[in-house]
Design a protein around this nucleic acid. Structure first.
Length: 661
RNA sequence: GCCGGGGUAGCUCAGCCGGUAGAGCAGCGCACUCGUAAUGCGCAGGCCAGGGGUUCGAAUCCCCUCCCCGGCUCCA
């Protein structure tokens, strides 16, 4: 019998090693590049340190720093280094938790005397971290019993709480905890409660930066103390860190709040109040094009347009259940007509239910699809407001579909297809869905209804070819739902559309239709928002296109610039030709600005086309065409052919080529 | 709502430890009439978010309110 162990690598090959060999040694034996990139390992799927000794036959995978899992380890180790730096610089600080997150890590602290971190502190902490990295401290794993752990963290209440809760939740499991030590030069050093794994040594780290300080409730509970969280980002190389910082700059450049004001689309004057926006003419043009297109698509697909008021009496909200469940999120009522309370609407559905109920309905009318751009008001907590993306007054492209149980699956299937088709028209190409099931607590309705509806959603989404995740227990209180997410031009994920099955409201409003059997039946309702909120969708479009909208959406599609005043009559003629064909154009005359200045302004305003007309054009009925995104002007283009091409582009709602600029 | 940071001209921002405001861009006027990313000169523009307080004197220091930013919590 051999005393060698057999390890199986991810490619299926095997190696013989002697017992006690470390994962790091295996990596080194495979190749020096791998050894250099290695940060941790997986031993029979269990994440372990590179220093872990192999004592049995196993499957082993080396985790490298350029993988998601590897970056996870790097970030986690960097968080430890940050905690060490903070404890060095702020004696008496308590440290709570410090996990890796997308793009980086954070650590939560409580400073003695309620002191807060300042921006200067971040620089000091970061400098101390660099010293720790340079000191090449090893990460040493140690396991100990629960009591020893509690003793070790005697003056660290948050750590003690974690140890106690870990123990409580793992009844019967072995009650040991693991800690990682970073011994300092003088024998002191840092120790943190941690499952690991970690990089072998701090010198393995370095491409990090501390980003910001923020408050965060301990354990995410707003009734518990607020700790101070420091966020950092960390990467496998300086290059990857740089790229990340560039992505942040890019996101900032696209910020809809900045571009919205710069391009004169919207504003948020303080006088208006928090969470409310004004749509300026240029923003309003885009919005009306969006809405017109949406209405046309809805009509084509068998929806009927409705309009409903902004306020309704309290009894309507009692019937719908909003006053029971969501009174906190509603604007307060105004009192009229001897004590009747009228609430601004937080949702449109009760109105659509009333339209359904306005007369006897036949099964022959179903599915009945009501559609409305309905402006709603929700009292969002002040701290959550964010430009157009989270706002208190907004407009839902809201639809309520009433159907029979038999119609549910086909209706959901065509709904998904419809939603994707409209989103594609606006330039989104990547979709991901999330199917949310019945919440554990706080839900209403029978098990059979929930099962039926959930099954219908699964069937529809399985047939759609969309990739999706299941979010257990994340459904609305009245029914399960499918949310559709998109990826924008720089890869960010946004939740847009939602499809929700609802048995509750039809019941509360006692909706009925007469079936083929001449009996009364209760319809099922589907709530559906496609853009979600027009304001939010618009904000996302601004960021997706960085303000350079496709021509069909652009507020000004074409600028006409006469080279000199004498070309103005011809420019007027060109402009009127464009306008007669329905193109949105403007003429910027030569009276005050040079041609160069006007061209520059046109480009900064991201006009899709800037036409320059001079002597040559007047005599030959042409224009000089500057297309957005192309450096070269196209001189001498006949007006007719330019216009024909432009109209085709608008008519087809053509999208910019490649990634948006 | 909570923690932290802010609010000075339309925009971006300067204004140290208190001595009653400044730049660039934008705007307006005049000149320039020009073929592709800033023509020149000049002018005007601020209740320093709002209110209260301290002080001989407040943009500056303190308090309250409103609004914004970054997080946390929340999101029918």
């Amino acid at each position: 019998m051999s005393d060698q162990l057999t390890i199986t690598l991810p490619d299926g090959s095997t190696r013989e090693v002697s017992p006690g060999t470390t994962a790091a040694e295996v990596a080194a034996s495979i190749g020096s590049r791998l050894a250099k990139a290695a940060v941790a390992a997986r031993l029979d799927e269990e994440p372990v340190d590179l220093g872990r000794r192999i004592e049995r036959d196993c499957a082993l995978a080396i985790v490298t720093s350029d993988s998601d899992e590897g970056r996870h380890v790097l970030r986690h180790s960097t968080a430890h280094v940050m905690a060490q730096a903070v404890l060095d610089l702020f004696p008496g600080a308590k440290f709570a938790i410090g996990p890796p997150i997308e793009d980086g890590f954070y650590y939560d602290f409580e400073l003695p005397g309620g002191v807060h971190f300042s921006d200067d502190d971040l620089a000091r902490i970061e400098a101390r971290m660099r010293e720790i990295v340079a000191a090449d401290q090893p990460f040493v794993r140690e396991e100990m019993g629960r009591e020893d752990g509690l003793a070790l963290f005697g003056d660290q209440p948050y750590k003690r709480e974690i140890i106690e809760s870990v123990d409580a939740s793992e009844v019967g499991a072995d009650s040991s905890v693991s800690v990682y030590r970073n011994p300092g030069p003088a024998g002191e050093g840092f120790v943190d409660l941690c499952r690991g794994p970690h990089v072998p040594s701090t010198k393995r780290l370095g491409a990090f930066r501390l980003m910001k300080v923020a408050g965060a409730y301990w354990r995410g509970d707003e009734k518990r103390p607020m700790l101070q969280r420091i966020y950092g980002t960390a990467w496998e190389s300086a290059k990857a860190l740089d790229e990340h910082l560039h992505r942040l700059e890019e996101a900032e450049r696209r910020d809809h709040r900045r571009l919205g004001v710069e391009l004169d689309l919207v504003s948020f004057p303080e006088e208006l109040g928090a969470g409310l926006a004004l749509w300026h003419p240029r923003g309003a043009v885009i919005r009306s094009v969006m809405e017109d297109y949406s209405r046309a698509r809805h009509r084509e697909s068998g929806y009927e347009l409705v309009f409903t008021p902004h306020i309704a009496r309290s009894n309507l909200w009692e019937t719908s259940g909003h006053l029971d469940f969501y009174a906190d999120g509603m604007y307060p009522p105004m009192e009229l007509d001897e004590g009747h309370r009228y609430y601004p609407k937080p949702m449109n559905c009760p109105f659509h239910l009333l339209i359904f109920r306005s007369r006897i309905r036949s099964y022959r009318e179903l599915p009945l699809r009501f559609f409305e751009f309905g402006t709603v008001y929700r009292y969002e907590r002040s701290g959550v407001l964010h430009g157009l993306l989270r706002i208190r007054g907004f407009t839902q492209d809201d639809s309520h579909i009433f159907c029979t149980p038999d119609q549910l699956v086909p209706e959901l299937s065509s709904l998904i297809e419809f939603v994707l088709s409209v989103l594609r028209a606006f330039g989104f190409e990547q979709f991901e869905a999330e199917l949310s099931t019945r919440p554990e607590e706080k839900s209403v309705g029978s098990d059979e209804d929930w099962e039926m509806a959930t099954r219908a959603l699964f069937e529809a989404i399985d047939g759609s070819g969309l990739s999706y995740d299941v979010a257990e227990g994340e459904g609305a209180f009245y029914g399960p739902k499918i949310d559709i997410h998109v990826r924008d031009a720089i890869g960010r994920r946004w939740q847009l559309s939602t499809l929700q099955v609802d048995f509750q409201e039809p019941q509360r409003f006692e909706l009925e239709y007469v079936g083929a059997d001449n009996e009364r039946h209760r319809p099922i309702m589907i709530h559906r928002a496609l853009f979600g909120s027009v304001e939010r969708f618009f904000g996302i479009l601004i960021e997706h296109y960085a303000g350079a909208f496709p021509t069909w959406l652009s507020p000004v599609q074409c600028l006409v610039l006469p080279v000199a005043d004498r070309h103005e009559p011809y420019a007027e003629k060109v402009l009127s030709q464009l306008r007669a064909a329905g193109v949105r154009g403007e003429l910027w005359d030569a009276t005050h600005d040079t041609l160069g200045a006007r061209v520059r302004r046109g480009k900064l305003e991201k006009a899709p086309y800037v036409l320059v007309v001079g002597d040559d054009d007047v005599s030959s009925e042409t224009v000089g065409v500057n297309r957005r995104g192309s450096a070269e002007a196209d001189r001498g283009v006949p007006v007719d052919s330019f216009l024909a091409a432009l109209l085709a582009e608008i008519d087809e709602r053509r999208l910019p080529e490649g990634a948006a600029p």
